[in-house]
């Protein structure tokens, strides 16, 4: 089972890499935000998988839970920025 978990985990890493593409090259900030959100959701699972690999999943659940929550806060905060500030394109922002 461990090998299976490990391969799933590696697969998730690969998917993270794909999300990371959006993060790195997303044309707008919000695209990056999508990328980060996607990475975050994969991370939650990955954390639990690591827990299973260590056979101590009870310890990793807490982290995953906290993680899911804080990711939410961060995303809300970042998107909330645009509720109050206009101008999305990079470098186009000037006050």
């Amino acid at each position: 089972m461990n090998t299976f978990f490990l391969s799933i985990a590696m697969g998730l890493c690969l998917l993270m890499f794909m999300s990371l593409y959006r993060c790195l090259f997303g044309p707008t900030v919000l695209d990056r935000l999508i990328g980060v959100n996607a990475i975050g959701s994969k991370t939650v699972v990955l954390l639990l998988l690591i827990g299973c690999l260590y056979e101590r999943v009870d310890m990793f659940v807490d982290i995953a839970l906290a993680y899911a929550f804080l990711n939410f806060v961060a995303v809300i905060a970042a998107s909330r920025y645009f509720h109050k500030r206009k101008g999305l394109y990079e470098e186009s922002f000037n006050d």
Partner: peptide, 27 residues
Amino acid sequence: RDLLGTAILFGAYSFMMCLLWAVMGAV
């Protein structure tokens, strides 16, 4: 070249770091 982008990427960086610590057993 956008500080909000930096902020978001920095968040992503922290996610990764967190995973890394978890992998290394530093819960």
